[in-house]
Every structure is written in C-alpha cells, then in structure tokens.
Design a protein around this nucleic acid. Structure first.
Lengths: 174, 174, 174, 174
DNA sequence: TTTT
DNA sequence: TTTT
C-alpha cells in the first residue's frame, strides 16, 4: 500500500527567513509560520485562540525565492511533507527530535509584512516548476535532499551565494 | 478500499452568493469562485494567466454564514467534495451534468470585496463545528444532503428565511 | 488573514493503538503510523527508501473507533492538524517539544493487519459526523480539546472504560 | 491574493485507461475513477451509499505510466486541479461544459484490479519528479498544457507511440 | 516569533 | 514500531 505524507498550511512568518547556501551552491531556507485557530468556548461563551508554530524547510530554487521575497509577517501558503529529524543535545548528548515541514510548494498571500506591494500571489513549485521558470535552474538546486543534510552543514554553508539573487529577479512572474 | 473525495480551493466570488431556504428551514447557498493560475511561457517568456470557475454549494449553518458574510469579490477558502449532478435540458430533454463542490468548511480570507471590515478570518465547519457554535443549531440545518435535493427545490424555497439572520449574529466568532 | 493547518496521511500502524479514558468518560487514542517514500537515486540508479513516523492523537468518538478497529499493521487514512506539545524532561527539567497530528477524520484502508476481514473502509468524522452516527454520542465525547490536556491526565485515566465498546458496535457502518 | 485549486482523490478505475499520443509525442491519458461514500441514515438506520465518478486527465510521463500500469478496478491516489472544459454539442451546436481533474501526481494503491502483482505503490510526479526518473524524459512530455488541447487533438493522435513503452520499463521504481 |  |  502506497503512503501519503502531505501538509497544507497558511500562516504568517514570525521572523525573517534564514537562507544559507550549501557548498554545492544549493540554497536552504528555514523559517517558522504561525497558524491560529479561534473558537468560542461553549461554557463561557468567551472567544478562545490558540497559535501553533510550524518549522518550514525549503531547498533549491524554492529556498532562493522564499529568501528573497518572504519576510517577518508575510502570509504564505505552504505545501509539503512532515519530516522528523534526529539531533544530539550537545549538553547531555541525548537524542532529540524536531519535526519540520519540508516544503515543495509555496504561494505568497500578502498580509502585514507585505511592504505595501501591489500584485500578490503566484505559486512556486519545488520540482522544475512546469512552465514557471527556465530550465536553466540546474537539477541540484531543485532537489530537496531526502536524507537530512549532515548536521554540520550549516557551518559549512558558503559565505557567499553561489549565484547572485539578482540573476533570477526577472524570472519572477509578477 | 475506502475512497477519498476532497477539494481545497482559495478563490474569489464572482458575484454575491445566492441563499435560499428549503421548506424545512434549511439554507442552501450557491456561488462561484475563480481561481487563477499564472505562469511564464517558456517559449515566449510572456506571462500567462488562466482562470477557472468553480460552483460551490453549501447547506445548513454554513450556507447561512456564507449568505450573510460573503459577497462579490470576497476571498474564501473552501474545503469540500466533488459532486456531479444530472439534470434535464428543458429544451431538448437531454441529460446534462454539472459538477459542483459541496463545501463542508469555509474560511473567509478578506480581499477586495472585503468591505473594509476589521477582523477577518475564522473557520466554519459544516458538521456541528466543534466548539465554534452552540448546539442550538439544529441537526437538519447542519446536514448536507448526500442525495442531491429534488430539482424543483429551488422553486419551493421559502420566500422568507426560517429564522432571522440577526438571531445568530452574536454567535459569529469575530 | 485566516490560517490553515491541515495534514493528510496514509500509513501503517507500527503497534496496536493505545486507548485511554479520561475521568469524564472521553476516550483518547494514540498511535504512530509510518509513511514510506521510495525513489530512484539519480547517481547510482539504486532504489532508495525513507520511512517517516507520525504520532497520531484522537479524541472522543473517533478515539473509540480507532481503539476498537485499528491494530498493528493497519493501513489508515488520517486527516487532522499539527500540534506541538511542550513537556518537561523529568531528568533535567528542560523544556521539550513533541509534534503530533490531532486527527479529526479517519478511514480504514485495510492492509496486512487487516485480519482478513472482507469489506473495509468507511470514514469517521470527529465532529458529529453528518449522518454517520446517531446524535446520542454526546458533545464531550466528540470534542478534541484545543488546549492540550493536563500532562498528568494519562495517569488519571480511568482503569475502566466509561462506556462499553460493545454499546456502539451496531452503529459502525459496515 | 493567490489562489488554490487542489483535488485529492482515492478511487477505482471504472474501465481501462485510454492513452493517446499527440503529434509531438506527448502522451495523454484519460480515465474515470469512482469514489464511494457510505453512511447510516439517521431516520431509517439503513446503510446508504453514493458513488461519484471523476474524469481524470494526465499528460506526459505521468500519462505513460498510468497507461501502462493502471487498469479497470485499480485503486489509485490522484492529486491535481479542477478544470472545466468547454465544448460544442455537435447535434445542437450548443456550448457544453465538462469538469475534469488534471492530475499532477499519482500513487497506485493496489486493489481488485491489481492482477495479484506483488509490489505496489510508489508515487509519480508530473513535474520532473525529483529523483524518481531520469532527466532524459523531455520537458514537452512532462508538461500539462494549461490551455486545453485543441478539440481535434484526439483524432490527430499518432497511431503509434512516439516511444516504446518498454523503453522506460526499467526506470519504474519497483 | 506572526496575525486578527 | 509499519508496509512494499
């Protein structure tokens, strides 16, 4: 029996995204988004609210776009899969686990951190992107590693982007 | 093998919704929403755009809320199932088919037709709604008929709402 | 801007589910399901595989059904929302976090742990369930608490079910 | 505001899929799948059942795989978008509309028409497919036309496949 | 840490 | 810990 692992989120970034570049030039972008549920308590009739935070990771082309266009407060639609990553607590050496959403699609929805820009929207796809983008964006930049990158990867991240963000500016479809 | 029939849409209403009430007091709300894809054509480099229209049907409590709060231009998240309804072409007597999304969840997302209102958002659930609403909203109003309502239902629809919209105004959680 | 927090999974239970009953008679059911992705490595041409484990929590009526019908190996469709729960490491007193899927819909898909039964499937809904079940299943049993239950709740769980599983056996729609 | 147009289905094929090849060698695959809901009527206590049929269209690589591996009775997971296509009734010249799901992902789930084969499952992605398949599958074969193909396309479809199905047999990841 |  |  095949399996399914799919997450759909709409929420706001709590902080600016963090984008790093791997030695091979691949981008990785991480940020957290908040989703908020509200409901009315049956007993008290009071409005209740609960916020949930979700850790998002993106790779390749999608990471570059997120790093350039998203910021604190941005409203974003994210589609991806759940992944729980194991890591070591440096203090105690104990195993710890963190659950993240590995995104393969993103749509900017505007919102507070929008910067007042006019046209909103557009969808980006992790995988080659149909007609959205030129084929020149190489395969490595378009692959989310299925194995979690080595834990030391962040430190190895190149200080300079492997390619200039400006280079693809005019490929953005808005 | 169990089956799955799920649709998720975010789009804008093309016109104000139409709400009718069945003889038993149940509300039915119909409207269309547009979703627009845009992409860049690989050959020409031109931005392309394509709009798709979706027919939404809601029943019961959800229909009442939609009828009261949505209007032309509203941006809305809809979750539901696909249903293809058979009907007769009165001219020719031929069988015809219309595909609709029977919604069981809705979230208002604001947007152009927002009317400038302050608080937006909140989610409504077709089925009893968890803690969102009081139990007083009766079962009949909360059920989407699994069989398509008789075709003549629209004409039979009560001229007056079975209950006053104002009655539930202060149950709306925003 | 309203938010969205939705997870869709199809996977297999790693162990039998654990069902407990709260002092108020509400059921809680926990289990883990595995989803497996497989792909072919571009370099080596080797088939690769990666398994992800997801912690599922259910409440009320849905928990009772899961506790009765699911077992190790069962294939199941789960729909729900992500929730990250904070807890204290008893050793160190440090804050720790666990991400779970709070399910509000479930469909049994058969599979190895199926027990050889014939007809499988059917969908269950956390919230009142449309026409699926009788209204007699009281609201408390149908609500997933939006606030995580107090941490000590597990220990308080009644040793005996508040109601006999057999009671609702003939309400199961297959 | 960006929009979302997403459909998720699990169902069984009513007939063998029909695969055609466009003059440019691109495959198109069409089939219908049934989803069935069942519930218990509150009044009568009788089990009710309703089947819905969905028209699926696939293009390119995904169409080739579907054409080769799916058959009548196959259980399949489909992800895609809704598209309503306008066509002319040849009799009356009147405008008619057909709603289809343009699939961009598919997972075979086994089931009755499975043929008893061993390994099932695996997921295929319309868009380049991450690591799943070799890059040699050319872009044209991987694109779903956003504009509906010209109505006469079916008749023009090449009598012979542009490439032999056997050619990609060993790329299938199971 | 966001947003309403 | 499942499943293929």
């Amino acid at each position: 029996m095949a399996s399914l692992n799919k997450v759909l989120l709409i929420g706001n970034l709590g902080k600016d995204p963090e984008t790093r570049f791997m030695p091979n030039g691949n981008a990785v972008c991480n940020f957290s988004i908040a989703t908020t549920e509200s409901w009315k308590d049956k007993q008290s009739g009071q409005k209740q609210e609960k916020t949930e935070w979700h850790n998002i990771s993106m790779y390749g082309r999608l990471a570059e776009i997120a790093g350039q266009y998203l910021k604190k407060g941005s409203s974003v639609y994210i589609e991806g899969r759940l992944q729980t990553r194991k890591w070591q607590d440096k203090q105690t050496g104990a195993d710890r686990y963190t659950t993240e959403i590995i995104a393969d699609e993103m749509k900017m929805l505007g919102g507070r951190g929008d910067g007042g820009g006019g046209g909103m929207g557009g969808g980006y796809n992790q995988q080659s992107g149909g007609d959205d983008f030129n084929q020149e964006y190489s395969a490595p930049a378009q692959q989310a590693p299925r194995q979690a990158p080595a834990q030391s990867a962040p430190q190895q991240a190149a200080a300079k982007p492997a390619r200039n963000f400006d280079d693809f500016e005019d490929d953005i479809p808005f």
